[in-house]
Write a protein that binds this DNA or RNA. Structure first.
Lengths: 178, 178
DNA sequence: CGAATATATATCAAATCGATATAAATACAA
DNA sequence: TTGTATTTATATCGATTTGATATATATTCG
């Protein structure tokens, strides 16, 4: 599943412009799947060429044309085909964890700061999600929202319970032994 | 932090060939940061040009030259500089979760199958990690390994406790209301 | 003895990111 | 009211990264 496919998916929920699709990625998919303009606009062009979406242009005075995309019957069929396939493995990249991998090279203060920041970030995300979660329209969006909340909370718990291991390691002479 | 930087990091642990660096990514960083040959070899060339690593070539008979890379003093300095910066946000992409986002378009059987597969996958990863975790050399590698275990377990727990919500939604006529 | 796996290099098209450019409408505070 | 920031809306571009593929030999194991 690539960004092209996910654009199709978003269009199954209703017509949209490229801009609105980007916003949907940010508002409802950012935890799950990230996409930038540089991939969305080319994706929409290609989907249009392939007849999986259609595009109505509204020429506006003194503004660039507004292009509203709709999914076609063929597009729906292709999207269904795509989501029926076994999902490929997650792609995950964490600079935070990669940094901790080399925490023996860092001053203890930096380690503590990074962990503090991480916990703060997760708490903030939980705070802003908690409201939304309840007011989600569909069962599946609630399911995904609560999934996010649960994972963030698990991360906070782990960091709070175990950070002392890394911090102690940084302060003691353990490093010299390596 | 990019793959170039992380290659530097791996070389702080000892000299290595491109092949060995790839293996290190697989063995010790796959949870955290993925890298393929297509990014590692160009990274090493660029690092060599920049003088952050040095390269000794061992011409072997009947085999391509073996190139052993070492980090230079300047390289160590640059790497330290990189990990002292605030780590950027995680990059995460999950086809599994993206698929669930559109579970209302799937037959109930497919939803159950995907969740079953996911749980199996997580259990398998936990099984293969559990051994390793105890035998990790350093405190920080144990910390990261247990972090992974904890997150995988949290995911399993959530899926087991809440899958019925999605599955019931798929079976009932709830979909018609959307 | 033969098959599979490990060692080791490298490249390439395609996908994607992140930044930037452009331009006007709208909201909002000084 | 006037200036500033944000939102709406398009699009491109270099740099990064993926995933697949090519090439060759050594080693392991049934």
């Amino acid at each position: 599943m690539d960004i092209r496919t996910l654009c199709l998916g978003i269009l199954t929920m209703g017509d949209a412009t490229g801009y609105e699709i980007k916003k949907t990625f940010e508002d409802r998919l950012d935890l799950i799947f990230h996409a930038s303009y540089g991939s969305i606009y080319p994706a929409l062009n290609k989907l249009t060429e392939e007849g999986l979406v259609s595009c109505r242009e509204f020429s506006q005075e003194k503004r660039p044309d507004k292009k509203i995309y709709s999914i076609t019957a063929n597009g729906r069929y292709q999207f269904f085909d795509a989501i029926m396939k076994k999902p490929a493995a997650d792609r995950f990249r964490s600079e935070f964890l990669a940094t901790l991998m080399f925490s023996h090279l860092l001053p203890a203060s930096a380690i503590s700061e990074f962990i503090d920041d991480r916990i703060k970030d997760r708490l903030q995300k939980i705070a802003s999600m908690a409201d939304e979660c309840g007011s989600k329209q569909t069962v599946r969006e609630q399911f995904l929202c609560n999934f996010g909340l649960t994972m963030y909370q698990a991360e906070i718990d782990y960091l709070q319970d175990n950070r002392h291991l890394l911090e102690a390691d940084a302060l003691m002479g353990t490093r010299a032994a390596e």
